[in-house]
């Protein structure tokens, strides 16, 4: 399926957000996810089914002031 990952077009197999996180190379990385602007906790990624056009955000710790 074709989705947006951090505002970049990507094609993944899915079907779940948990699958996508794995397929995108994040594996066991410390990241948080959101789909179409809504936070999706790690415990709910497996039950969150993606579809074409979904906008997925994958965020990680970064320097901040």
């Amino acid at each position: 399926m074709k989705i947006l990952v951090n505002n970049a077009a990507r094609e993944i197999a899915g079907p779940s957000l948990a699958d996508a996180v794995e397929q995108l190379g994040f594996g066991n990385a410390v990241v948080a996810t959101a789909v179409d602007g809504d936070f999706v906790p790690a415990r709910k990624r497996a039950s969150m089914m993606l579809r074409d056009g979904h906008a997925v955000e994958v965020l990680a710790p970064m320097q901040g002031g």
């Binding site: 190379g25 994040f26 990385a29 990241v31 994958v58 990680a60």
Partner: peptide, 22 residues
């Protein structure tokens, strides 16, 4: 210390090293 969140690349994983440091 203050920290933030930014988009992560699955290839670079830049945030992981920073988090380990903190």
């Amino acid at each position: 210390v203050t920290v933030s969140l930014r988009r992560e690349s699955g290839a670079e994983r830049a945030g992981q090293g920073f988090w380990s440091l903190i």
